[in-house]
Lab assay of single mutants.
Amino acid sequence: KWEEIAERLREEFNINPEEAREAVEKAGGNEEEARRIVKK
């Protein structure tokens, strides 16, 4: 599940997989929260 979210974030925000994974981890697997983290 987290991998899927990280993949979507990576494609959408054009970030590297590591950044995407970190955002999802910080968000506890919550996609909306992960998006907010990435946008900062």
Rank of each mutant, 00 (worst) to 15 (best):
E19R: 05
N14Q: 13
R36I: 12
K39W: 01
L9S: 00
R21G: 06
E4P: 04
R35Q: 05
E12S: 03
K1G: 14
V38T: 04
V38I: 15
R36M: 09
E33F: 03
G28Y: 09
E4A: 14
A27F: 02
A20I: 06
A20L: 05
P17F: 15
A27R: 00
E31R: 04
E3R: 09
R10Y: 08
E3M: 12
A34W: 00
I37M: 06
E4R: 08
K40D: 12
E19T: 11
E3T: 12
W2I: 07
A27H: 02
A34F: 00
V24F: 04
A23T: 05
E31T: 04
E12C: 04
E7V: 08
R10M: 15
G29N: 04
V24S: 02
E11L: 09
E12K: 02
K26Y: 05
I15F: 02
E12I: 03
I37E: 06
E3V: 13
K40E: 15
I37D: 05
R36G: 07
P17R: 06
R10E: 14
A20F: 03
R36Q: 10
L9G: 00
E25N: 10
E19S: 11
W2M: 07
A6Y: 07
N16G: 14
P17N: 10
E25M: 10
P17A: 15
E11S: 08
E11P: 05
K40V: 13
E11C: 07
K1L: 14
E7I: 14
K40Y: 04
N16M: 11
G28E: 10
E31H: 11
E25W: 03
G29T: 01
E32M: 09
A20G: 03
A6R: 05
R8I: 07
E12Q: 04
R21W: 15
I15R: 03
P17H: 15
E4K: 10
E33S: 07
A34Y: 00
K39M: 11
K1V: 08
G29E: 02
R10G: 11
F13S: 08
A20Y: 02
R36W: 00
E32Y: 06
F13R: 06
R35E: 04
R21Q: 11
R36A: 11
K40R: 14
G29V: 02
N30K: 07
E3D: 12
E18Y: 05
